[in-house]
Structures are given as structure tokens and as C-alpha cells.
Design a protein around this nucleic acid. Structure first.
Lengths: 108, 108
DNA sequence: TCCATATGCCTAGTGTCGCTAGGGTACAGC
DNA sequence: GCTGTACCCTAGCGACACTAGGCATATGGA
């Protein structure tokens, strides 16, 4: 469970270039060292949400070999949102860390 | 919003000693530098959940001056759970950081 | 040829979680 | 007396991600 940070992780994954849903799932699993093995029922609705929110755009691609794929690309709004969410994550993790990492108290 | 880490923060707060619900709220606000200003409707049900789960124990205290307070104490099970949750948080924040903090990739 | 597996997309329903919005009591200061 | 603060509680709601399904195409082995 990504506890509210699923969208951030998806946006960060697509920052490296467009990808279709299934590839996003594999990339997240790979890049997290297997920690985040997300079911499709989690990722596909999230991609739809992000597209409706204007942070992603999608195109259907029909390759010569293989199945049709829906390829998602980060929009400019998505890039901006990702930047803000990075800052949000930094602040959040620092604040929670102040409780769970006693050697790292909240900076005065 | 604490995104699934509310229980961890409460347990960590009570690690420093018993406290009643209202004091827990204030301590969390103080210790987070105002970042986590939790409504009572969030904290009280969480304390009840944690008590039912056996991680906290509570006693009603009637001081000479002032109102009755329900004071919560970490149980041994709660102390053990907090230790595990610390490790869980470390792993989680490292994994999310691998996406949102590009300078800190997932350790190989 | 047939079947299993992998690829690839999708949705309805559900449980958990934390918040909103309310309710109530007791004490202190104006 | 009235307001503000301390202190406790609950019902209901919305967001989120997961379960559990469905469906279609490509591929490789038996």
C-alpha cells in the first residue's frame, strides 16, 4: 500500500518518458526493489484519475507486433504537479521521521 | 493527513510517557512544528482502535483540580509494534524516496 | 492443434482511514 | 452570565487502494 503517494510514484515513473499502464506497473516494481507490487486494479484507475485531472495525456498505439497499448505521457501540468509533490513528500517524510526516527528531530 | 501513519505517530508520542487524548493532540502538533494539527475526531477513534488492538491501555484519572482525563499508556505489545513500525516506516520512506528523491536511488 | 502463460486493458464492489460536523461536561476569566 | 478553553465522544462521509472478477491477443510448448 502506497498510502496516498501512489499518484506521486506514478508521476515520477512517467517523468523518465512515456509508458503504457502495464509497463508502469513493472517499472514501479523494478524501481522499488519489489517493495511495490501493485495490482492492475490499483494502477489503471489511478492513471485514469490523473488523466482526468490533466496531469497525464494518453494515446492508443498499435504496434506491428503485439497488442494495442495505451501510452501515457506527462503533461506540463503533470510536471509542475510532480515538482510540488516532491516538496510535499520531503516535508511529510521529515515530519513523520521526527516521530519515528528519534535521531532526526524536527529542525528548529 | 497522515496517510496511514497516524497510528505510528500516536504510538511514538506515547513512547515518551503516558498522556491523555487532548495532550496527545497538542504534543503531535508541537513536535511536528504545526504540520500535523489533528482534529479530535481523528485522534480519539484512533486511540480506541489502538486500545482494542491491545497496543494501548487506558485509565480514567480524576485530578484534584480540573476534569476527568483518560490517560493512555503504551503496553508491551504496543512497544513491540512501535519497533516494527519504525522499521516499516524506514523501508517505506526509502522506497518512496527512490522515486521522489532522485539523488537517493534504491540501494542495490 | 490445443492449452497455458504472459501481455494488456478495464470496472464494480468493498474495507480502511481520517475528516467533518455535530454533541456533551467542567472550569476560568471578564 | 457568557465566552473561551480543556476534555471526551460518535455517526456519517469521501477518498483511496485493493479484491475479484471480465475480456482479448500473442507466444511457446506439448
Amino acid at each position: 500500500m502506497l498510502k496516498g503517494h501512489l499518484d506521486n510514484v506514478i508521476l515520477a515513473t512517467l517523468e523518465r518518458g512515456p509508458a503504457h499502464g502495464y509497463a508502469v506497473i513493472e517499472e514501479i516494481r523494478r524501481r522499488s526493489g519489489g517493495r511495490f507490487d501493485l495490482p492492475e486494479g490499483t494502477v489503471y484507475p489511478a492513471l485514469h484519475r490523473l488523466e482526468i485531472a490533466g496531469l497525464l495525456a494518453s494515446d492508443w498505439v498499435t504496434p506491428d507486433a503485439g497488442r494495442r497499448k495505451r501510452v501515457y505521457t506527462l503533461t506540463p501540468a503533470g510536471t509542475g504537479a510532480l515538482r510540488e509533490r516532491r516538496e510535499g513528500w520531503a516535508e511529510f517524510s521529515r515530519a513523520v521521521g521526527a516521530f519515528l526516527e528519534p535521531e532526526k528531530p524536527w529542525p528548529a
